[in-house]
């Protein structure tokens, strides 16, 4: 009755763990020490990678929401939840690693900078998404409203970013031009660039692995729910 775990998923698990170890090794031993900021700059590789994966998760939720409203297929709902949950975890990693970096560089754990505020609001939007789902009992309606809110929520994120972008930011932009007001900017050497790209790839693999697991979990819990219904009848 229960699906067996596919072999390729197990392989992906092992692969992701190995890659993560390799990336950690690369961050610590391959990438050179940044001249001004020193060792704390190394958090940057995983910071950006986690943010990237978080955005991918939310984007996935958006597409799943649209697909659900189009097809009314429950599997898209499961994909949407998976995207939101994984995205939230990685955004949180992004925020926490950012804090660790900001403590010595900006001399504060937290400041109401545009980037930071946007990230917080994004977490709030998706926390609200999860609470909305909690409040609805019927699976069909839950899926429908979840899809609608995932769409609306994702649209609001760039607008929020734009709204505070009009104020100036102190968050450094490493890739593609920097704001002169940014504090703690630096330019990457080739070895740093390789490490950075590698961590991006590793986190992407990790995200695919986790989302896959979450989708399987969602399918399983759907099955459990159906069985419970059958028992009650």
């Amino acid at each position: 009755m229960v699906q067996k775990k596919p072999l390729i998923l197990t392989a992906l698990d092992v692969f992701a763990v190995l890659l993560l170890l390799a990336a950690t090794g690369m961050v610590f031993f391959y990438a050179p020490l940044e001249a001004v900021m020193g060792a704390v700059q190394k958090v940057f590789y995983f910071h950006v990678a986690a943010g990237w994966v978080g955005m991918i998760g939310f984007l996935l939720a958006l597409f799943a929401g649209v697909a659900y409203l189009k097809t009314k297929d429950m599997k898209w709902d499961i994909v949407g939840v998976a995207g939101v949950e994984i995205g939230m975890v990685f955004m949180l990693i992004n925020i926490i690693t950012g804090s660790i970096w900001a403590r010595p560089i900006w001399n504060t754990w937290w400041t109401w900078d545009p980037r930071l505020t946007t990230a917080t609001i994004m977490e709030l939007v998706y926390a609200a998404y999860l609470m909305l789902r909690q409040g609805i009992e019927e699976p069909e309606k839950r899926a429908r409203f979840g899809a609608v809110y995932a769409i609306i929520g994702f649209i609001s994120v760039p607008l929020t970013f734009l709204s505070i972008r009009i104020f100036r930011t102190i968050h450094p932009v490493v890739i593609g031009g920097g704001d002169p007001g940014a504090e703690g900017s630096f330019s990457m050497t080739p070895k740093m660039m390789q490490t950075f790209m590698f961590s991006l790839a590793v986190f992407s693999v990790l995200a695919v692995d986790l989302i896959w697991h979450r989708i399987r979990l969602g399918k399983l819990s759907e099955k459990v729910e159906q069985m419970k219904l059958r028992l009650e009848q």
């Binding site: 909305l132 609608v148 709204s163």
Partner: peptide, 22 residues
Amino acid sequence: MTVQTRTRDILLPILLFPIVIP
């Protein structure tokens, strides 16, 4: 959306606030 949920009183501001910030 929220009138059709269980916790409708609390849920509307929670959903609305992050969206209307900009």
